[in-house]
Every structure is written in structure tokens, then in C-alpha cells.
């Protein structure tokens, strides 16, 4: 991933990568460094942050720091899983719809239109009812529902390059469709796709929480950042600082994803070429 590597040479990209790395580390080791049992109730409910409970306690007297740490893997993995599913079932048809003929194009367009028309919550509830109420099923539902966004974005990006003369030249050499996409199309759509992915991952984190709020997917008392946020919101008058800790983590993750996406966009595609040429101090072509 040349584009990602060059994005890390910008300050914004580096900061974003460091924050994301910390979040990932948290997702891996979070449950093991939690000072208390995240599920254990105690009499000390809704305590303010103090020396024992750094982030305070929630309405059942559970240690918030432990819950935030223990909830990290579930929150992060589920968001990535949903986006991963969405990417696979959105991007692949998105690219191929441009090249594989009008019938295939028509079918994929109508399927994606159909998915866009589905009301999100009703679909999620229906999937939970059909496949059982668990995290995997909920993430499949979320993934399917964000796929049309990826499909549309990818398709639009591919369309603007699909019939470029260099693609025709490549086809005249007898290049396969896969090769044409890999060598000529992929680098053009990647910046757009990365930004969309970062945004979708951010949305994914929040969707997981909103589903938890409805009791779909992650079932209480299992902690997730979104779940902690939702329960804290009910006790704002008693513990107004409550939502700060889970929100800070969600914001840091979402914010750095967006920052990274921005850096990648700036260092690849047309922007990236202009940057590169400017750094080399040469005349910039009318690309």
C-alpha cells in the first residue's frame, strides 16, 4: 500500500496512525489490564472519578475504566467487521458493474437500490429475529446495509476512469480485466475508497452503540463503548461527567480515522502527484 505509506510521511497521517495504533493495542490488551471485573456490581454507584475508580463508577457500581478497557475489543472489532463485510459486498460489484456488461450492471444497481430502500433498524431487527440475536448477525446486517454506499462510491470513481485511453491501451495489449483494474483503476479509486472506509468505520462504531441501545447485537451486561455511553446518558443529572470517557475514545478513534483518510487523500491521486512534483521542485504538468 504505497499510498498509505506516503500518507505516514505527513504530520497528520503520523498522528492519526499513532492514535489508531494505541486504540488497536487497547483492543488487544484492554481486557487484561482492566483493574476490576467489568461485570461486578458494587454498592458504590455513580461515583465521581477518584483514586480507586479513575473514571468513576456507573449506575450499578461497576468500574467505568474497567468497562471501557474490557469493551475495547468488541467495539473495535465489530466496527471493522461490519465495514469489512460492507467493503467486500460493495466494492467488488462496484468495480465489476462497470466492466461486465449491461445485464450484470442492471442487476447490481437494482439490488443496491433495494438495499438502500430498506429501513435500517427494521432490517437489523429482522436479521436478529431470523438469525438469532448476537454480535455476528448484527454486524452482517450492518455490513450489508453499508454496502450500497461503497458500491455507489466505487462505481462513480471507476466510471470516471473506466474508458480512459490508458485503459483502452492496456486492453489492446490483451490485458485481462483483473490486470487492468489492478494496474490502472485501483490506484485512481483508492483515495476515494479510503476516505469512505474511514467514515464508515466511524459510523460503524456508533451504529454498534445504537444497536446495543436497542438491545440488538451486543447484549448487556457485556460492555461496549457505545453501550457504556448509552447507559451513562440516563444518569446525566447524577453523574454529568459519565459520558466523557467512552465518548473520548470513540471521538479519538473516529477522528484519527478521518485524519488518516485525509492524509491518504492528500498524498495519493491528483493531489498526491502535485505534492510530489512540488517537493521535487519541478514544473507541474496539467494533469
Amino acid at each position: 500500500m504505497k499510498q498509505v505509506a506516503s500518507a505516514l510521511h505527513t504530520r497528520a497521517g503520523l498522528i492519526a496512525a499513532i492514535v489508531l495504533a494505541l486504540v488497536l493495542v487497547l483492543a488487544v490488551i484492554g481486557p487484561y489490564i482492566a483493574p476490576f471485573d467489568p461485570l461486578k456490581n458494587s454498592g458504590a454507584i455513580l461515583q465521581a472519578p477518584n483514586a480507586t475508580h479513575w473514571f468513576g463508577t456507573d449506575y450499578l457500581g461497576r468500574d467505568v475504566l474497567s468497562r471501557v478497557l474490557a469493551g475495547a475489543p468488541l467495539s473495535v472489532y465489530t466496527a471493522f467487521e461490519a465495514v469489512g463485510i460492507g467493503l467486500v459486498i460493495g466494492v467488488i460489484p462496484g468495480i465489476t458493474s462497470v466492466y461486465l456488461g449491461r445485464t450484470y450492471e442492471w442487476i447490481t444497481l437494482r439490488v443496491m437500490d433495494g438495499l438502500i430502500a430498506l429501513p435500517f433498524l427494521i432490517f437489523a431487527i429482522a436479521v436478529a429475529a431470523l438469525l438469532g440475536n448476537a454480535v455476528q448477525q448484527a454486524m452482517i446486517a450492518v455490513g450489508i446495509l453499508i454496502a450500497p454506499a461503497f458500491y455507489r462510491i466505487t462505481r462513480a470513481a471507476v466510471l470516471s476512469h473506466a474508458n480512459s485511453q490508458y485503459v483502452t491501451a492496456s486492453q489492446l495489449f490483451g490485458a485481462s480485466l483483473f490486470r487492468v483494474i489492478r494496474t490502472h483503476v485501483w490506484s485512481k479509486i483508492l483515495p476515494t475508497l479510503v476516505v469512505a472506509t474511514a467514515n464508515a468505520t466511524a459510523a460503524g462504531l456508533l451504529i454498534v452503540s445504537s444497536l446495543t441501545f436497542l438491545g440488538i447485537g451486543v447484549v448487556p451486561p457485556d460492555p461496549t463503548w457505545g453501550g457504556i455511553l448509552a447507559s451513562d446518558l440516563s444518569y446525566l443529572s447524577q453523574a454529568p461527567y459519565g459520558p466523557i470517557f467512552p465518548s473520548l475514545l470513540i471521538m479519538a478513534t473516529v477522528g484519527s480515522l478521518n485524519l488518516l483518510a485525509d492524509a491518504i487523500k492528500d498524498t495519493s491521486g491528483d493531489h498526491g502527484r502535485v505534492r510530489l512534483l512540488k517537493r521535487r521542485g519541478r514544473r507541474v504538468g496539467t494533469a
Binding site: T168, G174, T183, D270
Partner: peptide, 30 residues
């Protein structure tokens, strides 16, 4: 058709050399 094209018997040079070259690939790659 792809096999015939790989023989390279007939090639095409486009009108506008900027648009016919992939801006992301070096002259060598092209």
C-alpha cells in the same frame, strides 16, 4: 481476442498523449 492482442500485431497511438498515459505510472511502467 486477448490471445491475438497479446501477439501485439496491431497497436494504437492516441491523439492526446497526456490523457493516453496513466498519470500514476512511470514512463518505464508504461
Amino acid at each position: 481476442l486477448r490471445a491475438f492482442r497479446r501477439s501485439g500485431a496491431a497497436q494504437y497511438v492516441f491523439q492526446d498523449p497526456l490523457r493516453s498515459l496513466d498519470p500514476d505510472r512511470t514512463v518505464f511502467d508504461t
